[in-house]
């Protein structure tokens, strides 16, 4: 049996005296998308950084395709970085380099034999993928935060990674950009890529998650398949499962497509998510069956509505 693309074994991270990740264990199989939810400060970003080797774990093991990160040789680590991408919450573009160089550097590092034309093609393809068609000679400071984050996503995609770590990839983006991020996530899944995502958007989780994890105070309270997550009954998880179930409600009738109807529907949906008994919602959810069908989270309201709520 092939090793999982990513595995964490009792990973603990500390900062000073504080424990920011507490014995987290999980597996991510090839082609799966794992989404991690939790309140601000619950450890989502810390988990991503530990799992990607950006933060050093004080205990435990992190394995990429069976190889432990801390024991990788320089060449193995370069290969790991070549096959993975990281989308930062605040873009983390290199301020003293042009957007073009921000996108080109990973290619230059990992494909030293590529000529300028091939690098240029890779850079333009990545920018096009995220829908950025402005001048790439600009510096990051000249862009809005949303644009910077799109370029940050493009940088993570420029080498077509097998595993993509994404820290709140659609948060604080306008609806069009958020939907583009979701489209990219869908395309990555279609191509069999693995996703490891910290997200506050239950819309995105409902659309793409194969596995859902819930963090609180650095502890992974629960981690399971989407269907398992929908069935969690622990009071500590109820808020999150409630939102996931709401996303799996049956498609709205056609009349709801008008703006007023959509508002009414959204309000009714919110109300039903709060009022209906848990077992009934769960039945409704399992009847829906297809989490990727995204019947209720269309392009316009998917990210925006949930982001606003989350």
């Amino acid at each position: 049996m092939a090793a999982p693309v990513l595995e964490l074994r009792s990973v603990t991270c500390t900062r000073g005296e504080a424990v920011i990740l507490d014995e987290v264990s999980l597996r991510l199989e090839e082609g799966e998308a794992a989404f991690f939810m939790g309140a601000a400060g619950s450890g989502k970003s810390a988990l991503l950084k530990a799992a990607s080797g950006l933060d050093v774990a004080s205990a435990g093991e992190i394995l990429f395709r069976g190889r432990e990160l801390s024991r990788m040789t320089r060449r193995e680590e370069a290969e790991f970085r070549r096959k993975t991408g990281f989308v930062f919450q605040d873009a983390a573009l290199w301020a003293n380099q042009s957007l073009y160089d921000n996108l080109a550097l990973p290619v230059r590092i990992h494909e030293p034999g590529l000529g300028a034309a091939a690098i240029d093609a890779a850079v333009r393809r990545a920018a096009e993928l995220v829908g950025y068609d402005e001048e790439l000679r600009a510096r990051p400071a000249e862009l809005s935060l949303g644009e910077r984050r799109l370029i940050g996503l493009a940088r993570a995609l420029v080498l077509d990674p097998e595993l993509l770590y994404m820290d709140e990839p659609a948060a604080n983006l306008d609806e069009e950009s958020a939907e583009r991020v979701h489209e990219i996530q869908a395309a990555l899944k279609d191509r069999g890529r693995s996703l490891f995502v910290a997200s506050s958007s239950s819309a995105a989780v409902s659309r793409f998650a194969d596995r859902v994890g819930v963090l609180r105070g650095g502890r992974l309270l629960a981690y399971g398949s989407f269907d398992e997550a929908a069935a969690w009954t622990d009071p500590a998880l109820r808020g999150i499962t409630g939102r996931l179930k709401a996303r799996k409600a049956p498609p709205r009738p056609e009349w709801a497509s008008s703006l007023a109807g959509a508002w009414a529907d959204a309000l009714a949906e919110d109300k039903s998510a709060v009022d209906e008994p848990e077992w009934k919602l769960r039945d409704g959810a399992s009847g829906d069956g297809d989490i990727d069908s995204d019947a209720d989270a269309g392009p316009s309201e998917g990210g925006g509505e949930e982001d606003g709520r989350g």
Binding site: S52, G53, L54, R82, F86, A92, W94, A95, L105, I109
Partner: peptide
């Protein structure tokens, strides 16, 4: 650069 996570970004792309 540390505060802006730029150093982490270098590590993330293999630099």
């Amino acid at each position: 650069m540390v505060v802006a996570h730029e150093i982490e970004a270098y590590v993330a792309v293999g630099v």
